[in-house]
């Protein structure tokens, strides 16, 4: 199994190649929003680093969003057309899940219970999801279990929901644990460019010491974690044909929102009646 994974939903594009043993090679751009121009070179670089010819690939995976609409499309189109031409199946990976995957080790080391990737969607909007970090029975492997749906949240609503969860945990523990902080220290592990946009709001709404921010080295989307999730999905047969690989925008186009809400400008919708 040799999977090519593409990640273009954030500021920096990247490509990675993973084999069935989990060995990964990747290449990332250090130029912002250079996805269209740079993508083929990144793919070529990742493949040659791995010593894999494109004819040896078995799957094409893409991070399908949420994120920058334009970025999502570049990655998805590239994956779809490569899969069509090389006659390969596709694997669809959520950008948020891949971001959570990327920080899982760091979150567990920090003692965090919740991993929360937050993508800035401007004007207090975010795309986010909440995962609980769990150890499997052998205490060796760590896994992520989704506890809040991946969708568009107002940052205030997301923080309220997280506060409520912490309060709930606190109640569960009351009487048994002396110090809340001892039990829930670093409970929430934030990652993503939502930190850059909403750091102050997070600091103002959650108790100090109950959250951690991912370092900048791990904070943004990267194809390596897309590849790791893609490998698990491919092994379990969770694949698609190229035409089934679709973007996950999580938001309608603005004009479509207005059309559905009936607030599209009348001048545009109805021609002048004579």
């Amino acid at each position: 199994m040799k999977i090519l994974a593409i990640e273009t939903t954030g500021k920096y594009g990247s490509a990675a190649v993973i084999d069935e043993t989990g060995l990964i090679f990747s290449a990332a751009s250090n130029e912002e929003m250079n996805h269209l121009k740079g993508m083929m070179s990144l793919i070529d670089e990742a493949l040659s680093e791995a010593g894999i010819k494109k004819s040896e690939l078995t799957h094409i995976a893409a991070s399908v969003g949420p994120g920058s609409f334009t970025g999502i499309r570049i990655g998805v189109v590239t994956a779809r057309v490569m899969a069509q031409m090389l006659d390969l199946p596709c694997v669809s990976v959520s950008s948020l899940e891949a971001m959570a995957e990327r920080v899982l080790d760091a979150a567990v080391s920090a003692g965090s219970l919740y991993v929360v990737p937050v993508i800035n969607a401007r004007r207090h909007q975010t795309y986010a999801g909440v995962w609980e970090a769990e150890f499997t029975s052998d205490y060796e492997k760590k896994t992520l279990c989704p506890v809040m749906e991946e969708k568009q949240y107002m940052i205030e609503d997301l923080l309220d929901a997280l506060s409520a969860r912490i309060t709930e945990k606190e109640a569960e523990a009351s009487g048994r644990v002396q110090s809340l902080k001892a039990m829930l220290g670093n409970a929430v592990y934030f990652t993503g460019d939502g930190i850059d946009a909403y750091e102050e709001m997070i600091r103002n709404s959650l108790p100090e010491g109950l959250y951690v921010f991912a370092g900048e080295d791990l904070r943004y989307q990267h194809a390596e974690s897309v590849a790791r999730i893609a490998l698990r999905k491919a092994v379990s047969g969770d694949t698609l044909t190229y035409s089934g690989l679709m973007p996950e925008y999580m938001r309608l186009a603005e004009a479509e929102q207005r059309l559905r809400a009936g607030t599209l400008s009348d001048r545009i919708r109805k021609p002048v009646k004579l």
């Binding site: 269209l36 993508m39 083929m40 494109k54 189109v77 590239t78 779809r80 057309v81 031409m85």
Partner: peptide, 10 residues
Amino acid sequence: VAAAKAMAYA
């Protein structure tokens, strides 16, 4: 452009 490049490369 992205589609053309992916096909050209593949």
